[in-house]
Write a protein that binds this DNA or RNA. Structure first.
Lengths: 125, 125
DNA sequence: TTGACATTACGAAGCTCTTCGTATATCTTT
DNA sequence: AAAGATATACGAAGAGCTTCGTAATGTCAA
């Protein structure tokens, strides 16, 4: 299993890459700037570092490099959740689930979806 | 609402304080050393910083200071979960819940508990 | 081809977190 | 009281992350 553990800023960029597909630094930076001010070279540097770490790869054929997510969305989120569960909930995912549910307003639809997932889990054991 | 956001190391210490109640640096350090090597002064410094931040307070009456958790367990975990949901799941707690459940093996008992919580949530809306 | 502009490369500063060495103070034991 | 053990205070180093300024390079239009 891959073991990607992006930082918060890196994760922000990965989200954009996951949604948009391969993207230029310019595009990523524009997206980021819809939420907060980030300098262009800041974003560039971050993506160069992510490239070194192997979180993304890039196509340097053209002048404008195109970055592609290497870290897979599901794998990455699993890693993040596992880490978070270990640090904040002593390894108990169920405690996290309970805390998250008790903490938030959930719509009836969401609760139905959740019950469906639980049924699935019950039947596959 | 309080807005405590402890770091990983600070959280480790808070867990011990929550479980054991008011404790000395020596005790905390001993507990930490059951899991990994930490120097005594490292733990001391960390707790002094936590004191400055207001995460803990301390009783300095005796030579050996006694530290007490100020950050409440439930509040702190809620803050952590909210933060994590925002960063990793675009603010959707339900996505986190689904990911955590799909990611882990859950016992039948845990699933029963979870269903009970869901029923409670459904009835209170 | 030359000037204007966009892009990349590089280095460094500032911040936070963690870690620990050393100095100082306090208690205990003999 | 002196020696030894235990505790606190303080400062600083090192690592990782984020940020940005500046320089170098590539591209395109006039």
């Amino acid at each position: 299993m891959s073991n990607f553990k992006p930082t918060d800023s890196e994760l922000e960029i990965l989200h954009i890459l996951w949604e948009n597909g391969p993207s230029s630094v310019r595009y990523i930076n524009d997206m980021l700037n819809e939420r907060r001010d980030v300098g262009y070279t800041t974003t560039l540097k971050l993506m160069q570092i992510m490239n070194e770490k192997g979180l993304v790869k890039r196509d340097t054929a053209a002048k404008t490099h195109i970055y592609i997510a290497v870290a897979k969305e599901n794998d990455t989120k699993n890693n993040l959740v596992n880490d978070f569960v270990n640090v904040a909930f002593h390894g108990s995912a169920m405690n996290l689930v309970m805390q998250a549910l008790g903490n938030t307003k959930s719509s009836p639809e969401e609760l139905e979806d959740l019950k469906a997932l639980i049924s699935k889990l019950e039947n596959q054991s």
